[in-house]
Design a binder for these strands. Structure first.
Lengths: 191, 191
DNA sequence: GTCTATAGTAGGATAGAC
DNA sequence: GTCTATCCTACTATAGAC
């Protein structure tokens, strides 16, 4: 892995652990095993490096979600697979956490990938729900957009509750709870 | 308002806006219109001041929730009233946001009120749901704890989505979505 | 490309005058 | 109680040698 790649990876880890404000260039360099010169040679500064890190993390999150949502199975099964996918719950969502970082939200460049990723996720989930609604899998009255927002919020909020309590249990409960509610809107999918 | 109170209020605002790591004593003093001497006279330092601020915010959140949840109406109505209560959505949850602050979570004293508040909220909501289940308002099969977790997560996650998109819409959608799902588990409450 | 040296600003706390 | 002065460390970036 090149020095530039190591810098981006270290930045991704630290942004996840400590956020943008809580991450110093010095900490990044220490973790990457690089000197100041390397960083300022490959990137213009902390913001530029964070931008590369956030973009990569956003792309990964999107690809991981797409893998579940466009996989095999009914709409219900794909939604369930996505929500129930194994996650590092106590570490939280590497994109969602940036939402709490005032310096990220105040910078249009840093903010854009965060906004796009979460907006895309809601929209993509709504598509799958709509699919299931069209095929008679879900009740016709189901509001795909509102339900999609509720599902993504259950995940994001589940992370918050889990971190607060220091246990994965609340996350699992939130996912179980929202899926149980959704099941009431499910008609028998047939085969 | 005393100087000590102004310091606590300024700290509450800044913790909400910028988090613990992103808030410096200097910024607190500027906002409170006080000098360094005042702060270190009334408090031992940043951590002590933050502790007072977090405790007060936690108490307020709890009182506000209790007002809705122990108010008049059916369980369904009280839950709806709590979820639909007017909120400063784009500012986020002043307690939930601390969950993303590594320095808060690493400090047992600062962390305790965050953990207690969110744990209490889930439990209190579960009680109301159980009440409604007992009175036949909700389906007997409803898992009160899981549903409570899903509802609180919808709020906390709704904040995240709203901040990401820069609009209150995703928050409202998440609340609408989860309440619509819950409605399917509702039997006619009668009178 | 990478290193060390340097610099200016801010963070967090202490000391002592008033 | 509050103020100013002071201290040490960290943050973020630049300069210039290798």
């Amino acid at each position: 892995m090149s020095t530039a790649d190591r810098l981006v990876e270290s930045t991704r880890e630290l942004l996840w652990e400590r956020g943008y404000t809580g991450t110093s260039p010095k900490a990044i360099l220490r973790r990457a095993g690089a000197g100041q010169g390397s960083m300022y040679h490959h990137f213009t500064g902390k913001q530029d490096l964070a931008l590369a890190a956030i973009r990569r993390t956003a792309a990964e999150l999107r690809a991981a979600a797409e893998a579940q949502l466009s996989g095999p199975g009914t709409a219900q099964e794909r939604v369930t697979a996505y929500l129930r996918r194994e996650r590092p719950v106590l570490r939280g969502c590497p994109i969602g956490r940036l939402t709490q970082d005032p310096d990220v939200m105040a910078d249009p460049e840093l903010r854009a990938p965060v906004e796009e990723t979460l907006d895309w996720l809601r929209e993509r989930l709504a598509e799958v729900l709509d699919e299931g609604r069209g095929s008679g899998e879900f009740a016709a009255a189901l509001d795909a957009r509102a339900t999609a927002a509720a599902l993504v919020a259950a995940l994001q909020g589940g992370y918050v509750l889990a971190r607060a309590s220091g246990s994965e249990a609340p996350f699992d409960q939130a996912v179980t709870g929202v899926l149980a509610l959704l099941a009431a809107h499910t008609t028998d999918p047939g085969t």
